[in-house]
């Protein structure tokens, strides 16, 4: 594996009032891996993802992505650099259609700039057409193509998860932070989603995912990081983490 990490989090802190959700947490994600992040409820995993994606401002610490310092950058600049995250609780845009939700996630759609609408109408049309086609391809992968023109609010809980993943893929990211991507997705589809993720990883993408399903973590991840009370308490290949006494005590249980 490549030695230089794609993402490094060092000494990152975030407190909500008295709760130290993330407490001087440091970790690294190597490129072209599927890295798992596990830990008990309330360990600070989702908060850490939100900090990395720029949605929360950390109280301290440093985050580098691909060598660039990204803590303090607004979310859209982080997406531009090639880092996208999905939400644990789906944030579907309810009154937009599924297809609109996905097309919206495209990164360079010239029609999203007001002046281009008037100055380059032809390019706007061409871009939009191209991104719609791309969005439909992605919806096929995530098996939502039959619902492309339904309102996103009409999706089931599991389908909303699939929409999250579809949108993340649409921005063509180098690193995808997936917050419980297959929670609530039926086992068959969850399996094929993880196959898809493995395929994409082979294509050069990196995945950093939070997951409570130990099957997914043990069988699909190359590396597992364990968080507890805002800190990283262990990391390693899945088998070694499963055998780690501290992890068993705090998370896996006897």
């Amino acid at each position: 594996m490549d030695a230089r990490p794609l993402l490094t989090v060092s000494e990152v802190e975030k407190a909500f009032g008295g709760i130290h959700a993330v407490d001087r947490c440091s970790l690294a994600v190597l490129p072209k891996t599927i890295t798992g992040l596990i830990g008990p409820n309330g360990a600070g995993k989702s908060t850490l993802f939100n900090i990395i994606a720029g949605l929360y401002r950390p109280d301290g610490g440093e985050i580098r992505f691909n060598g660039t310092r990204i803590d303090g950058l607004p979310p859209y600049e982080i997406v531009d650099l090639g880092l996208t995250k999905t939400w644990q609780i789906p944030h579907e845009l309810r009154n937009l259609t599924v297809l609109e939700n996905v097309v919206l996630a495209a990164k360079h759609n010239s029609g999203e700039h007001l002046l281009n609408l008037f100055a380059r109408p032809r390019q706007v049309k061409a871009d939009e057409k191209q991104w719609r086609a791309r969005a439909r391809e992605i919806l096929k992968l995530t098996q939502l193509d039959g619902l492309a023109n339904e309102h996103a609010r009409a999706l089931s809980g599991g389908q909303k998860k699939l929409l999250e993943l579809s949108r993340a893929l649409m921005s063509d990211p180098t690193l995808v932070l997936l917050d419980e991507p297959v929670a609530g997705v039926n086992p068959a589809l969850a399996g094929s989603l993880m196959d898809l993720i493995e395929n994409l990883r082979r294509g050069g993408r990196t995945f950093f995912l939070i997951e409570h399903d130990m099957n997914v973590v043990m069988n699909r991840c190359d590396w597992v990081i364990v968080m507890h009370q805002g800190r990283r308490i262990a990391e390693g290949p899945p088998e070694s983490v499963r055998a780690n006494a501290t992890v068993i005590e705090s998370y896996l249980g006897g």
């Binding site: 979310p75 859209y76 531009d80 939400w87 944030h91 010239s110 999203e112």
Partner: peptide
């Protein structure tokens, strides 16, 4: 597409931000 971003913001600004 510009107006679509506006509608997205109406639905959920944070999510729209996270979409870049």
């Amino acid at each position: 597409p510009w107006g679509r971003v506006l509608r997205a913001i109406r639905e959920d600004e944070e999510a729209t931000m996270a979409l870049g």
